[in-house]
Every structure is written in C-alpha cells, then in structure tokens.
C-alpha cells in the first residue's frame, strides 16, 4: 500500500515539474527556466560551417545577444519591455513579451572569431565556420 502511495507522490511531483518548467527539459541551464519564451530554430551543418536560423519577430538587432563559448552557442535577449501600456484596449493578446533564451552545444569545434549574424524579416541568421580539423596525434607507446 505504501508503495502505491509513493508512486502517486512521485507522479504528482513529476507532473508538477513538467508544468512548472514550461519547456520540460531538466538539462537546460537555469536561465532557460526563467525566460518568458523560447524562439523556434533550424540548425544546418554543411562541410564548412553551421547555420542557425532563429525566429525572432519584433526583436530589434540591438535586443539580441549571441555568444559562442567552448562550442556552446547562446542566443538571448528581451523584447517590448517598454510597450506594456494601455492594457485595456487589447481584444486579443497572444504575443509573449520579455526575455528569451536558447542554448545549443555544437558537435564540432568552431571558429568563434569568424561568427557572423544578421537579421532579415524577423529571422536571425548565424553562420559559424568550423575550425580547421586538428591533425590526429599518434602516440607511440614505448616498450620497456
């Protein structure tokens, strides 16, 4: 009987975690949980580079920050903080204001100095060239 009770408590806790944490991923850093929304992305890899497309409608170029550190790409920012006026005139309000955050770990070493980012029609395009492949190092094990 006690086992059933424990299982239910666990289920309850798990559901709480999923619903409180809007995106439900335990692996994401804390900043993800405190952000208001997460933009949708496409990530492509070509032999020369990685390309990331991020949907950021209504976000000005100065409102987004892109960083690349140890092959971890972070995209964060905030929008429309100043526009919280005249609440009562809205008949429909689906847009989410405030901060956004996404982070990706890139599968290969990249050249962080050559990263390029531009926005067109509300889409942020980030191009990250791959760094030159390190030459495999052969280590000879010396005998006794």
């Amino acid at each position: 009987m006690n086992q059933t009770y424990n299982a239910l408590t666990e289920l309850h806790r798990e559901l709480g975690r999923v619903f409180d944490n809007r995106y439900g991923s335990a692996r994401e850093p804390a900043a993800y949980e405190t952000s208001n929304w997460a933009p949708q992305v496409d990530i492509t890899e070509t032999p020369e580079n990685f390309r990331v497309l991020v949907d950021l409608p209504g976000v000005k170029p100065g409102e987004v920050e892109v960083t690349l550190h140890n092959d971890v790409l972070t995209i964060k920012g905030a929008r429309d903080h100043e526009k919280e006026v005249e609440q009562e005139n809205y008949k429909r309000r689906e847009r989410i204001r405030g901060s956004f955050f996404r982070q990706f770990s890139l599968p290969e070493s990249t050249d962080s100095d050559a990263i390029k980012a531009k926005t067109t029609n509300g889409v942020l395009e980030i191009t990250i060239p791959k760094s030159a492949k390190p030459v495999p190092l052969t280590i000879t094990v010396a005998g006794e």
Binding site: P57, E86, N89, Y90, R92, R93, G122, V123
Partner: peptide, 27 residues
C-alpha cells in the same frame, strides 16, 4: 519541417480603428 507554427496575433481597439499585429517571421 514542422507542420505547426506559432503565429501570435494581437488585436487592439482604438477610438476609430482596429490595430492588428501578427508575428510571421521569415516572409
């Protein structure tokens, strides 16, 4: 590609007009 997109809309009413915004990036 995903078959579902999130296109958030907003409708505001002023004295003589309606103002509508629709988020539709990449078009």
């Amino acid at each position: 590609a995903s078959r579902w997109g999130v296109l958030s809309a907003e409708l505001r009413e002023t004295g003589d007009s309606l103002e509508i915004m629709l988020e539709a990036p990449g078009m």
